[in-house]
C-alpha cells in the first residue's frame, strides 16, 4: 500500500474530528443549560480523542519524525482535508445540533464499515470510536426530533438550519481519489455502500421531527481536496495561535 495515500486518508478522517471537535468546544461555558453544555463538550472530547488516534497513526505512517501535534498545529488551510459541513459556524443550538446530526448519521455508518478494514490499526480505532458515535447519533437525533416537533419557534429554527446546511451533506459520501483508492484495497470505506443508509437515516429522523426535507441540491464540495469555506481559516487561527506565535512551545 502507498503510504502517502494512507496518510492522506488519515488526514481526511482526523481533520473531520478535529474541526468538528473544535467547533463544539466553542460551546464550552456557553451552552443553553449546564446539561447541554456538558453533553456538547463531552462529544467534543470524544472527537478530539479520535483525532489523536488518527494523527498518531498518520505521524507513524509518514515516518518523517513529526508528531500528532505537528500535524494538528502546523498545517495550513489547504492541507486540511475535512468536509465543509464540520467547519460551518455554530450559529445557535439548532444549527449546531443539525450539523452534528448530519455528521453523526454519516460517521456512524462510516465507522461501522471501517471496523472491518483490512488495516488492523484503522479497524481498532473504528471499533473504539463507534461506541462513542453511537451515543452521539442518538443524542443529536433526539434533539432534532425534539426541536422539530417542539414549539413553533424551535421548529422554525431547526428548519432554517436544515435548509442552510443541506447543501453540504452530499460531500460526506462523495468519493475523493483517496477514498476510491483506499476502498479498492479493502482498507478504506466504500462510500457508495453506505450512502443509501446515511440518507435513509437522515430522512427518517427529519420525517419524525416534522421538518420539511429540502429539495435543493447538496452539491457543495471541496473540503477533501483542501478547498474550504472562509470559516476554516478563522478556526485555524484560533486553534493554532499559540504554536504559531511561540513556535515549539510546550506546556
Amino acid at each position: 500500500m502507498d503510504n502517502n495515500i494512507l496518510f492522506d486518508y488519515l488526514l481526511q478522517l482526523g481533520d473531520n474530528s478535529l474541526v468538528l471537535g473544535h467547533r463544539l468546544s466553542e460551546w464550552c461555558g456557553h451552552g443553553p443549560i449546564l446539561e447541554v453544555d456538558m453533553a456538547l463538550t463531552n462529544i467534543a472530547l470524544d472527537l478530539l480523542g479520535q483525532t489523536r488516534n488518527y494523527f498518531q497513526y498518520a505521524a507513524e505512517v509518514e515516518g518523517k519524525g513529526r508528531t500528532e501535534d505537528d500535524i494538528a498545529m502546523l498545517r495550513d488551510v489547504r492541507d486540511f482535508k475535512n468536509v465543509l459541513l464540520v467547519e460551518q459556524p455554530n450559529e445557535d443550538f439548532a444549527y449546531t445540533i443539525t450539523r452534528q446530526f448530519f455528521f453523526d448519521a454519516y460517521h456512524f455508518y462510516f465507522l461501522k464499515e471501517l471496523s472491518t478494514s483490512k488495516d488492523e490499526q484503522l479497524s481498532a480505532i473504528a471499533q473504539k470510536s463507534l461506541k462513542e458515535v453511537t451515543y452521539h447519533l442518538k443524542y443529536s437525533s433526539d434533539w432534532v426530533i425534539r426541536l422539530g416537533d417542539g414549539t413553533e419557534k424551535s421548529h422554525h429554527k431547526i428548519q432554517n438550519a436544515v435548509d442552510d446546511l443541506w447543501m453540504y451533506i452530499g460531500e460526506l459520501c462523495e468519493e475523493s481519489e483517496t477514498d476510491k483508492k483506499m476502498s479498492s484495497i479493502g482498507v478504506g470505506v466504500d462510500l457508495n455502500k453506505i450512502r443509501f443508509m446515511v440518507n435513509e437515516k437522515i430522512n427518517e429522523v427529519l420525517k419524525e421531527s416534522t421538518v420539511r426535507i429540502p429539495e435543493t441540491p447538496s452539491k457543495q464540495t471541496g473540503g477533501k481536496n483542501g478547498k474550504h469555506t472562509e470559516h476554516l481559516g478563522f478556526i485555524l487561527s484560533e486553534l493554532q495561535w499559540m504554536q504559531r506565535t511561540y513556535p515549539n512551545m510546550k506546556w
Partner: peptide, 11 residues
C-alpha cells in the same frame, strides 16, 4: 425521562 437519562450520563 429519556432526556434525564442522557443528561445524567453526560453530567
Amino acid at each position: 425521562a429519556e432526556m434525564a437519562m442522557q443528561n445524567a450520563r453526560d453530567v
